[in-house]
Write a protein that binds this DNA or RNA. Sequence first.
RNA 1: GGGGCGUUAGCUCAGCGGGAGAGCGCUUGCUCGACAAGCAAGAGGUCAGUGGUUCAAUCCCACUACGCCCCACCA
Length: 780
Amino acid sequence: MNQELVTAYQPADIEKRWYAFWESQGVFEATPGSEKNPFVIVLPPPNVTGSLHIGHAFEHTLQDAFIRRARMMGFETLWLPGTDHAGIATQNVVERELAKEGLTRHDLGRDAFVERVWEWKATYGGRITEQMRRLGASCDWSRERFTMDEGLSRAVRTVFVRWFDDGLIYRGLRIINWCPRCGTALSDIEVEHEDVEGELVTFRYELADGSGSISVATTRVETMLGDTGIFVHPDDDRYRDLVGKKVRHPFFPERDMPIVADPGVDPEFGTGAVKGTPAHDPLDFEMGERQGLEKVNILTGTAQINENGGQFQGLDRYAARASVLKELQKLDLVEAIERPYIHAVGHCYRCHTEVEPWLSEQWFVKMKPLAEPAAEVVREGRIRMEPERFKKSYLDWMDNIRDWCISRQIWWGHRIPVWYCGDCGATFASLEDPHECPKCSSKSLTQDPDVLDTWFSSQLWPFSTLGWPDETEDLSYFYPTTLMTPGYEILYLWVARMIASGLYFMGDVPFKEVYVHGIVRDFQGKKMSKSLGNVIDPLDMVEAYGADALRFSLASGAVPGNDTNVSEDRIEGARNFANKLWNAARYVLLTIGDTRPSQVGDSLGLTDRWILSRLDHTVIEIEDYLGEYNWAEALRVLYRFVWSEFCDWYIELSKLSPDEGATRAVLVEVLDGILRLLHPVMPFITEELWSKVRPDAGSIMVAPWPQAVGRRDTDSESVMERFQDLVGSLRRLKVDHGIPQVQRIPVRIAAGKWRNELESMDSELIALGRLEAVEFVDEL
RNA sequence: GGGGCGUUAGCUCAGCGGGAGAGCGCUUGCUCGACAAGCAAGAGGUCAGUGGUUCAAUCCCACUACGCCCCACCA
């Protein structure tokens, strides 16, 4: 640690050294039951497949900053890290790997495939947490968790069985969102709607009795293969006489296709008559149920026309779309084609394939009874949500919630703990793998083949990671956690469900405050993506500018609820700031001799009182901004204080009296305060400098967070303001009069170098109305 | 179809009832004893438009225009 101070700050070695030191000292580790108050953040677990991208870096910087500040404020601090098994995403990754070997998961079989995923996890799963260390994340790695850990899996099962037994989990035949590429159902919020150019085809069905026809419109004309009726609105006079009649299907003349009236139809849209496809459209399903329509499924799991599609069997959905249209045209049934027709189509959030509404048997969680209390705690403020506006969208969503489809037809994940008895037909959920049917004692049991939605386990994260369902010391001390800092894109997918399940199983909220942040965009405000080539890799930035610089620039963009843009320029600016601090500290250390912080006496000069007052002011302002989670403003204040006040003025003025005790004491006192205020965001450089400023004080990580200590001094502030104003005027005058420009004019004035000249400029000073202030120069 | 956000200096963004700001970029001048990753001096804005509230509006309200986002089973 006794490395020579060099001119430019060199972060690389320092960062590595201090992180290793912190880990070795165990300063990240929390102790339950301590007398301090707990301050807890559970890390939103990144996908185990992930590598650290700039969004993670941003979120982790914020969390680390909150954690580090809390630690300095004297809280028992826990930042609990971990990763998510990310069902579909991880399975996709490993399947892609298999594909390179010319294999599919079916070639391996279920057990071998799952084994293979575990191997993958063992090899690559630690990458992202390794990268977090480079950023300086002060996580308690001794408590690191994975959503498929033994303990967390037990939590998942416990929850499933409880909800199953409480009637909150049920199985049903429903229209769900099916991803034909992933071969699995998706929940509604895993579907991303996007406008696409399609076509709106209007065609007609001839009435069976030959008395006319009825026209319908659709964007997916191939689904007419599954049509089993026509819906019209009961009050629609146009069709009143047709209700009860039948139409003839052009490809399946034997099919029974009644025209029925249902209030679900919007008479304003299209022709006001809807082709009824109960197996491939949610609304049609619902109306079909009411009207007793037959359900004809025409698609395979890979979105090809199945045996119900007659002559079209074997075509994929898009080929079938064209082919059916062509055949209808041949039959002269097509009345209009609107093309392009822009409409929203759902896409898989994992692979971006168009999702198909598909009829299948799935497991669901009944959300209404869970959502109501979860809405209540936010509505009444037991969970504070910042910025406030997210509260509204959260509540709207919760008030209109629909059931959650939790079964996935993949292999990687928590297997659904439900068994079917081959003898008595019983269906039951079980905590332990059963040996026999609890009803008839039959041994002929089959487990449900599906696994649970990955979010089913992540919703339990705030308590499953602390040991639940066991009553651990961690759980009772650290739950509820303190702060959750999600991006707004994950509010429904994750935050809402954590609140619901936390209330249900823990009887308390999972966290007390939610600070919603935006997403990171590039310097032009565009979303970062590989295809745009605008991705900034945080590790490259750490390499080039240091972790502190990256952290500072990210945190400076953290305006609550707003998206934040990063650019290399900004990071470079932050690096320059680190360097500025480094050099200022270098000057201070060279100047102060043996003087150390906390030696400020009573006999202080104007400038001493001024900078101490400004420091106090800065502390107060920062505290105010952080109270509203506003790191951006807090850091702006600090940046200004360090650069424009401490460096530009106080250090320069200190050169008048570098040998005075008061000067030395104040220099190091202010530096000490700056280091502590900056530590949450720039942990490395501050620790390094701290070790020089206070070699005997231990790590800055546990140094006390600065408090305002009543040094506000408005007199000195107003005098200095006028003085700064005066010096500015003098400098301008010198430029205007062609007098050679000088820097640090206060120093020279005091040194007498410019005194005569300045005095000869009285007339100009009078003209400027600044003359009175010259006295302050003399004072110095 | 609902809901939300934004429009401030060339660029990216803070600010938000009485002074229009920062970083980067630009111009000019500086090897002075912490720092050229620096210092100093500058140029550059009818704070999107219109109307209203107010003694006072970039800031509050309404409408308009243009962007963006979220939610949504209009076939």
